[in-house]
Amino acid sequence: MKTIELVIDGKKVQAEEGATILEVARENGIYIPTLCHDDQLQPAGTCRMCMVEISNNGRKKLVASCVYEVEENLVVKTDSEKIRKIRRMIVELLWPTVPALAKEFGVDKSRFVPEHTECCLCGLCVRYCAEVKKLNAVYFKGRGIDREIAFVPELADECVYCRECFNLCVGGLIVNQCGSVYS
């Protein structure tokens, strides 16, 4: 496998071809915040918390580091005023469903009126159930702003109450809903 050299936050690092920026950064002890990422799952690229600034041949752009594969001579900046602004805005938009990230970014209130208080729709439960458990008991229902997490209508069949998704749940919806069904 080919080895690629790139620079992350001024640090020269080596990586295998096909690795993502996020993976390489973490291997090298460089922190990038994430929400919808989990090592057991295929990257989804949906939360956009992991946006970083890359430049290659002088062209700068923002990309989601969890799905962007490393390239030779890539220069990555994992933090900047612009990136912080985006991350703060995302946390503000998700308020109050992502308490840990809110604390990290010093967001203690939001200028927006929240519509969900338990679910940030990160999709970790859906993907875990499909990719790891291969049960597909939870799914995304609807689209656009109507999107929500839902159980397959005949819940009892697909769900085996392994409760493994409880640990992944950021906002607590799964714990509350599934927990009540379980009891």
Partner: peptide, 20 residues
């Protein structure tokens, strides 16, 4: 807001709040 897929947060939540 109703025709986007709702997959990524900036678009979904951004449109939700813009519409509001």
């Amino acid at each position: 807001a109703h025709e986007s897929c709702g997959k990524c947060i900036p678009c979904r939540e951004g449109l939700r709040q813009m519409l509001r």
